[in-house]
Design a protein around this nucleic acid. Structure first.
Lengths: 249, 249
DNA sequence: TTGGCCCTTTGATCCAGATCATGGTGAGAT
DNA sequence: ATCTCACCATGATCTGGATCAAAGGGCCAA
């Protein structure tokens, strides 16, 4: 595994404030409100949150922040997909996860980000000043509870992913990824026949601790065997049971 | 990796309430109070917590709970070491982590445990009824904040471990484990020349996604090269810089 | 003292997945 | 159109760590 430098995003974009109809300018119109941390808040509290909210539009393939940056802001994703990753000095990458609408970025509330975040698609975000958000969380009990729910849920997912990385074979890893991604997308868009895959093969490989070739071969085999079907910008799962068996085996 | 069934702990022990001088019977005397979640509470709140606290002594090599069990209790470790793990159907194991004094078990606040917990040594714990503890956390703002700090800290560690499992070579994994374990122990006991390793080689292997042979060979080589020294029930790190270089490489 | 059991070490061999190499394909630029 | 560039697919070969095999200790029970 040498430095392969995939999809190197440019410098951090000048983040354009989100005007016009591109994203909800008020929480009341927000499509992910019920999934996001904000669901914890009542009408008055939402108003308070709104005062410290900046709506941000991030173009595709752009860095939101880098690992080690001072964490002056935290974010809620309202649309699009981000890739969260840690890099080693010699170019090896671990994709920690992918953030989708409703996800909160900055749970650690640490002074510095422990990973980098780059947009895969165009992304809309609510940006909060970290200090102000932390103050609000310390005032509003419900918000802190909701944050904890998010953090502990993430922790459970992280532990599941440890099993995948530590003890699963290549084929099992890819199956686990497809099934989990499908599940997450279903929560957002409802059960759908086709599964959008905004991330590339290299991103999947770096998420699963594999090489791009292994991911590609595994998917190609499943396509030959009619387990999945290739569609533009994603796949269609034809035989979910087969993927689940792969995982159970 | 076939079923190796290592260190199969017996059935869950009848947990003996902790009487006598074995463990602090009141929080005021607790040696880990400042490290544990309880540090968030003032004197009155500590008294309330104490009312729902059961002091428990768990013998070595005993199961505290199994993955999938209804999570009726949550715990703070006051002494000893526990092994937290997930098992696959065919015997493969992933050791999620090791819990040491000050650690909180049950952050997920989920209805069911996502992993099993077994004592490696004799362990003393504060057991809390989960419902009562959750109620207290929702009343006492400081406690919820503290829980969130713990959860998000754990999340950061989990993400670091993903890098180890996904992208590190065998030697790097073992170095990462020794350095991190040393760090954790240092927080408890102060910097010490010798490093106690209450877990076996198989446990380390299952934590790092390796086999026992690879762990054994790596440690043996470092002993030959005077990087570490074998001492009863642990090791002494002679050349920490060498381990850090291994990790940086 | 002996035997049994568990854990660890060490050597020999194997193989899943990495690495290396090459070609295909589609989207955007000119 | 044609070029370029970033992905993706796929065949050939290699290798780090797994697997297989065997042989020490250390501890405890009888």
């Amino acid at each position: 595994m040498e430095a392969h430098l995939p999809t190197n995003p440019g410098p951090i974009a000048s983040l354009t404030p989100c005007g016009g109809g591109q994203c909800a300018s008020v929480c009341a119109e927000c499509r992910v409100r019920l999934y996001a941390v904000c669901a914890a808040l009542d009408r008055d509290e939402i108003n308070e949150l709104e005062r410290i909210t900046q709506h941000i539009a991030l173009p595709a393939k752009t860095a939101l922040f880098h690992a080690g940056d001072a964490a002056t802001s935290v974010y809620t994703v309202t649309s699009g997909t981000l890739r969260l990753q840690r890099d080693l000095a010699d170019g090896r990458r671990q994709v920690i996860g992918f953030a989708i609408p409703g996800d909160f970025i900055g749970l650690a509330m640490d002074d510095h980000f422990g990973f980098s975040a780059d947009s895969l698609t165009q992304v809309n975000l609510c940006r909060f000043d970290r200090q102000a958000f932390a103050r609000l969380a310390h005032e509003k009990h419900g918000l802190m509870g909701r944050l904890h729910d998010f953090a502990s849920h993430e922790l459970g997912l992280a532990q599941e992913h440890m099993v995948v990385l530590g003890r699963r074979r290549a084929e099992e890893r890819v199956a686990a990824f497809l099934l989990r991604w499908r599940e997450r997308m279903a929560r957002l868009t409802g059960a759908s026949a086709t599964l959008a895959l905004p991330m590339g093969r290299q991103d999947i490989a770096d998420h699963l601790g594999l090489t791009i070739e292994t991911v590609s071969r595994t998917l190609a085999r499943w396509m030959r065997e009619k387990v999945i079907l290739d569609v533009p910008d994603g796949i269609r799962i034809l035989d979910q049971a087969r993927l689940e068996e792969t995982l159970a085996g």
